[in-house]
Amino acid sequence: MNTKTIPVGQDILSPAKQAAADLRADFTRRGIFIVNIVSSPGAGKTSLLEATARHWGGQHKMSVLVGDLATDRDAQRLSPLAPTVQLTTGGACHLEMPLIKKGLEQLGPIETEFLFIENIGNLVCPASHDLGEHLRVVVLSTTEGDDKPGKYPKMFRTSQVLVITKTDLLPYVPFSVDSAVADAQLIQPDIQSIAVCARSGEGIAEWCEMLEAARDRMVASRDDHAAVH
């Protein structure tokens, strides 16, 4: 009997990251822009998606995979506005690639420009899981406090956009949009920020324009790439 040390040196998530990268490449080819929306529970992800669908009103096609621990309440809210599949994790605190793949099968052959993934309400675990998205958006509501970015560094570090929601409540809560953005920028200097109110529609046009521009950039760089090869 002898012992032997086998060197590995591998991120245990590397197979999952590869699956995510493959999905992203496939959707880039098809011109579908994937947005992974993360936040704490109740920050306003579903409301933001409802407002987005209303704003576009069919002008841009969107589909949604919405994750929750249980119930299909969010899918019921979104289905009248866009093709939606509810993913229930039965307790798991975040979405992973196999569930996304299953959701995509259920969604069927979609003709869409945007695929939104509403993640499980949780600012910790979803940060570690690439779901093949082109853009990760972290949603922070004005009732959660402007000191949250620093407390959840991985989530803010891995996001490209910060959406501050429920701006209609600003007069009633001690929340500074500037402080929240500054705190997030310490962790992610490149983060883009937008303040919105899903109830009044304030900021929704700007949010939609940001998404359209980001998708245009994806399509342009894909075509540039194709031209070179």
Binding site: M1, N2, V8, Q10, D11, I12
Partner: peptide
């Protein structure tokens, strides 16, 4: 990352 460095096994 969550990195696996190595494992030691008995043979």
């Amino acid at each position: 990352e969550f990195r696996l460095l190595n494992i030691t096994i008995r043979q």
